[in-house]
Design a protein around this nucleic acid. Structure first.
Length: 472
RNA sequence: GGUCGCGUGGCCGAGGGGUUAGGCACAGCUCUGCAAAAGCUGCUACUGCGGUUCGAAUCCGCACGCGACCUCCA
């Protein structure tokens, strides 16, 4: 139950816009897209905040090393904000491609420096941070005296201390567990802003705390992100908000799981990922061919968000066929006539099962399984083997529309493989000749035309609705 | 090394003490001049070994295998 029904506050950690959006991001944002769609379908008014990280995310570990965006800017010889704009645009394009709805608010870290500096001030005032040499660090041991640092990720502070690796080069920190709230800008640093502690830039974890507080309040309903953000990022967010404002910021944490390839996490650092473009075009050594955005979306939704999902050509192809089947059933449903013969079918029970699946921790694979049961009933009714009244059909139409398009966010993709006007025209001529031959029962000629076209990679199908063709 | 999680039929993947997940593939059938496509039907699995139980894929223990986090990634 939300804090203030019917309003729901949802914050999701958005991308750091320093390179092309990664397929793992797509899965993560897809998960929350479906969550938002479902909540809205249930009648909640969701304020969905998803940030753009455009500063403060460092390349290396433990608050040392270069800013990711600044590094990219240097590599591409661009202004940092050009990098941010370039990859933000690309990110939006990919989101649109996969039919992922935009958030209600998409704040940037650089646009909320005042809020971040204010939050650091509150943390300092409460004694949970200290300034060293123009940088401000969060005092984790101090915080851990009164609060459960590591609770979210099930970590114990002693264990962490024991496991900490070398602390060379971070003498400014009192404890290796401490993390930066504000970093002093060294000479030559491309991105820096004035602050009470001098020129510098904000720590990565801070932006989410500051912006979620600003737009959703000190405590809000749901915070989402990838599993890999659980620690330390989200742990730090909890600590920052608690240290600044005295209470935990989030009621429910939702973490999406990773994408794997051949059993290994798909990660930028592993080099085993493909970009969304490569997945669609099939232009990657791991891909036999391309898959449409909706195929990919459906493929991802056939797995629960909290489970790892393994990419393979066979699995993608299975999803593609399954999606076609479901969409074909939905098309059939639109022109289905009532059927009074055969087995009865309980549409209300199907609807209840669909809702139950989604209410059970967003179980999209079970929802999809239910829809396949509906598809079977639709086909059976079409064949006169299942009973569906006009009222049943209307209800089923509404259910399929809601689940397929509104909630799962799928959309029809034209399978039309037709090319330019010239080839369309040529095909019309050839298929017309073939139809004439068939009418004369000159099957040798009609099959010859079909076989020659097949040799060119064009498949001709005689369906009940007429002749269709597509490029293989 | 520490923490956590997983191991389901040919493949992908839900579920989670007794009852069909679902999809793909495969086989048979229907429809078709023949194909293709489509539809229908069939295909009953839970890593191994112990234990708890009337009953375990599901709970507990051990073993093996795999993965994630512990350092940037959604």
């Amino acid at each position: 139950m939300p804090l203030q029904p019917p309003h729901v506050g949802l914050y999701v950690c958005g991308p750091t816009v320093y390179s092309d959006v990664h397929l793992g991001n797509v899965r993560s944002f897809l998960t929350f897209d479906v969550l938002v769609r479902w909540l809205r379908h249930l009648g909640y008014q969701v304020r969905y905040v998803r940030n753009i990280t455009d500063v403060g995310h460092l390349v290396d570990d433990v608050d040392e090393g270069e800013d990711k965006i600044a590094k990219r800017a240097r590599m591409e010889r661009l202004e940092p904000m050009e990098i941010v704009q370039k990859y933000t645009n690309g990110f939006h394009d990919v989101m649109r491609l996969f039919n992922i709805l935009p958030p209600s608010i998409e704040p940037t870290a650089t646009g909320h420096l005042i809020e971040q500096i204010g939050m650091i001030g509150r943390i300092l005032a409460n004694g949970y941070a200290y300034e060293v040499n123009g940088s401000v660090y969060f005092d984790v041991p101090k915080y851990a005296e009164k609060h459960a640092y590591g609770e979210l990720s099930g970590r114990k502070i002693e264990e962490q201390l024991a496991n900490t690796r070398g602390t060379e080069g971070q003498d400014e920190k009192r404890s290796p567990l401490d993390f930066a709230l504000w970093k002093k800008a060294e000479k030559g640093h491309l991105m820096h802003w004035p602050s009470p502690w001098g020129e510098g830039f904000p720590g990565w974890h801070l932006e989410c705390s500051a912006m979620s507080t600003k737009y959703l309040g000190g405590t809000f309903d749901i915070h989402g992100g990838g599993m890999d953000l659980k620690f330390p990022h989200h742990e730090c967010e909890i600590a920052q908000s608690t240290a600044a404002d005295g209470h935990a910021p989030v009621r429910y944490w939702v973490h999406g799981n990773m994408l794997t390839v051949n059993g290994r996490k798909m990660a930028k650092s592993e080099g085993n990922g493909f970009t969304p473009e490569e997945l669609i075009t099939g232009n990657h050594k791991l891909l036999e061919r391309g898959y449409s955005p909706m195929t990919v979306r459906f493929f991802m939704l056939q797995c629960h968000y909290a489970s790892t999902l393994d990419f393979s050509n066979a699995a993608l192809q299975a999803a593609e066929k399954g999606l076609q089947r479901l969409m074909a059933a939905n098309d059939l449903l639109q022109r289905l006539k009532p059927s009074a013969a055969g087995e009865p079918f309980d549409v209300a029970a199907l609807k209840a099962a669909c809702h139950a699946a989604m209410n059970d921790d967003l179980n999209t694979p079970v929802l999809i399984a239910q829809l396949f049961d509906g598809a079977r009933a639709i086909n059976a009714a079409h064949a006169g083997k299942a009973v569906l009244s006009q009222a049943d059909i209307d209800e089923l139409k509404a259910l399929f529309h809601d689940m397929l398009f509104t909630v799962l966010g799928l959309k029809a993709e034209d399978g039309a493989q037709a090319g330019d006007d010239l080839s369309d025209g040529l095909m019309d001529v050839l298929l017309g000749l073939r139809a004439d031959a068939k009418n004369r029962k000159d099957f040798a000629t009609s099959d010859m035309i079909r076989d020659k076209l097949a040799a060119l990679g064009i498949t001709v199908k005689d369906t009940k609705e007429g002749v269709t063709w597509e490029r293989g």
